[in-house]
């Protein structure tokens, strides 16, 4: 069985959904003949035709707005942001129209807004961002952030089938680095369910996206020091899988959160609050954070390397918490 990349998994997921359901169509910049800036939509124009694979002007707000309009009419649009950084241009349509529509007048907006996020590829300030928290704060949206090829495919399929607007954050660092053998049979991954990537005893790290691999690398090293780190991959950021998070916290009593997004207002803060409210009496130490610093994502290699959380940061935090 051949190995499938994270990127190819996403492509397969969209492809399968377009085969399965003729309401699904894609729109975005350069998604047609060019196949998308990262080739996620390659071959789709030929297979599904120009009515279902639509190249748009450089108008992120109109891309999302048009997706919303088509969704009102019963279609299932998948809108690509060429880089997820550009989602800021569509912020208003996403947060004011899509997110509030069902609540205001009962009109659901089953759209997917997807695009490559994250750093590690020397993209600089406008091609490396992690915009999840702009949307995490908006009731009515869902956000998924897969770390594995299996999840990337299963989650994009679930997102397309979901009745609410879903933002899919695909980590571009993983696009071609991550490969695995996918099941031959059709499957989906449910939105709102985290996964335990490594079972451990005594300490938990909660993370997602590319940082899952940083956490796993650190966990391998920590075994030599007698620290058995449990790695929880959140997979869906909104709605958070509170049950699994709290279960792991209650079991291990020591916990920290790791994310590539910047520190202040990052999801770690919210997770700390939830743990504090729901599992305070199970804590045997403070909930710590390992995150990027509060700066834009810098371009130059040494600066970017400094910016991104790495294995050594995780090791230091795990040791501090272990000795607490």
């Amino acid at each position: 069985m051949s190995q499938t990349t994270y990127l190819e998994a996403i492509r397969q997921g969209i492809w399968e959904e377009m085969e399965r359901d003729d309401r699904v169509f894609i729109l975005g910049e350069d998604v047609g003949a060019y196949g998308g800036a990262f080739k996620v939509t390659q071959g789709m124009l030929d297979r599904f035709g120009a009515l279902r694979v639509i190249d748009t002007p450089i108008s992120e707000s109109a891309i999302v707005g048009a997706a919303i309009g088509a969704a009102y009419m019963g279609l299932r649009p998948v809108a690509e942001m060429q880089f997820i950084d550009f989602i800021s241009c569509a912020f208003d349509q996403i947060t004011n129209v899509a997110a509030k529509s069902r609540y205001r007048w009962g009109a659901g907006v089953p759209i997917v807004v997807r695009g490559p996020s994250g750093g590690g590829v020397h993209g600089g300030p406008f091609h490396s961002q992690n915009p999840e928290m702009y949307f995490f704060h908006t009731p009515g949206l869902k956000i998924v952030a897969p770390a594995t090829a299996y999840d990337a495919k299963g989650l994009i399929k679930s997102a397309i089938r979901d009745e609410d607007p879903v933002i899919c954050l695909e980590h571009k660092f993983l696009y071609r680095r991550i490969k695995e053998t996918l099941p031959a049979d059709e499957y989906t991954v449910p939105i709102g369910k985290a996964a335990i990537r490594r079972r451990g005893n005594g300490m938990t790290v909660l993370t997602y996206g590319a940082m899952v691999y940083v956490a796993l690398d650190a966990a391998a090293q920590l075994t030599h020091e007698g620290i058995d780190l449990e790695v929880v991959d959140l997979r869906t950021l909104l709605p958070l899988d509170r049950d699994l998070v709290l279960e792991s916290v209650r079991k291990n009593s020591k916990v920290f959160v790791l994310h590539e997004d910047t520190r202040t207002g990052g999801i770690a803060g919210e997770i700390c609050a939830i743990i504090n409210e729901e599992a305070f009496e199970y804590l045997d130490g403070p909930v710590l954070r390992v995150t990027a610093p509060d700066t834009p994502v810098p371009f130059s290699p040494p600066l970017e390397e400094y910016f991104l959380p790495k294995v050594s940061d995780v090791l230091a935090t795990a040791r501090r918490l272990a000795s607490y």
Partner: peptide, 28 residues
């Protein structure tokens, strides 16, 4: 939606791309 009336939001002109998307769905 039963009457095919789309709700307006306070951010003016937001329904212009939405109208385009609705029309796009007719095309599709």
């Amino acid at each position: 939606l039963g009457l095919n009336i789309i709700a307006f939001v306070s951010m003016l002109a937001d329904s212009v791309p939405i109208a385009a998307g609705i029309a796009l769905s007719f095309r599709i």
